[in-house]
Write a protein that binds this DNA or RNA. Structure first.
Lengths: 144, 144
DNA sequence: CTTAATTAGGATAAATTTGTCCGAAATAAG
DNA sequence: CTTATTTCGGACAAATTTATCCTAATTAAG
């Protein structure tokens, strides 16, 4: 469904948010260890998320990644997926056609409309705070 | 959502089914031209589908691909996706975790259960006949 | 039997995604 | 100011997916 990069990006961001609930910054090293991802590859993804303002990064000793409490409410799962994998999964044709719409639909067009709306709505309504909280109270996990 | 190979496989199979509605066999060349796919790559995909009995193939002059009328009712979109991309999209964790279930769920687990059930049900209930018919009466299209 | 048309399949190449390495830049603290 | 720590970012490498090429095998028809 999502690329590896996107999976890592989501996991990393949730972990950063969880730590930020306790005003704690996390380093790339801690993140990669926690979510079981290749460190340098994760660095690229986080750099991109930081450049685009999805997470905050700080260099130097005591540096690392963090997220405002307010950001946890405004940042949705949708934003992370969109930032990393783009919007193809939300708007693209299920069969990869360039010109597929309700007028001249591909054979699966109507079948996919509902699925995509369902997915898009879920991703757009899921906040980082919600995901970070579930992780924080031990309801969910990022390893294994 | 699906790999290129899977997109080609779905399109090719629907086109084969449509032509079989009129008892007409189609060659690889016609298929690739119709669905706008690389011929040799499409050949690989169709070979695999034929080996696994999803479509029927015949060599020699007047050869090509076809599908029984009965098969069009039993063969579901699900079977094609499963044959080409495997079942990861149906059963895998949204974040790629190896051990993610209702007991120890990843942060997005519950969010994805409904989406996946929705997708799986749609794919399992969509027959080739339905898709081929829509294409045959000009309601849907495979080009562009 | 010969020929032509077609799928089968192995080998290889190109493109994309995933992953690694290493020096540069920034910065907190002694 | 110096040092240690951390992110940044370019270059490169490996793995996977997508695509191409070419020969073999099959088979319909003259």
């Amino acid at each position: 469904m999502f690329s590896k990069a996107c999976e890592y990006g989501i996991k990393a961001t949730i972990f950063i948010a969880q730590k930020s609930l306790h005003k704690t910054r996390v380093s790339l090293k801690e993140i990669a260890a926690e979510i079981g991802s290749p460190e340098a590859f994760t660095a690229k993804i986080l750099q991109s998320l930081a450049r685009n303002g999805l997470v905050e990064s700080h260099k130097g000793p005591t540096g690392g990644f963090e997220m405002d409490r307010a950001k946890m409410d405004t940042l949705k799962l949708y934003d992370i997926v969109n930032a990393i994998d783009g919007d193809n999964i939300f708007v693209g044709c299920g069969l990869g056609l360039k010109h597929c719409d309700a007028n001249k639909p591909c054979p699966v067009h109507d079948k996919f409309v509902g699925i995509r709306e369902n997915l898009t709505h879920m991703l757009k309504s899921t906040t980082m705070y919600e995901l970070a909280s579930g992780l924080d109270i031990g309801l969910t996990q990022l390893k294994r």
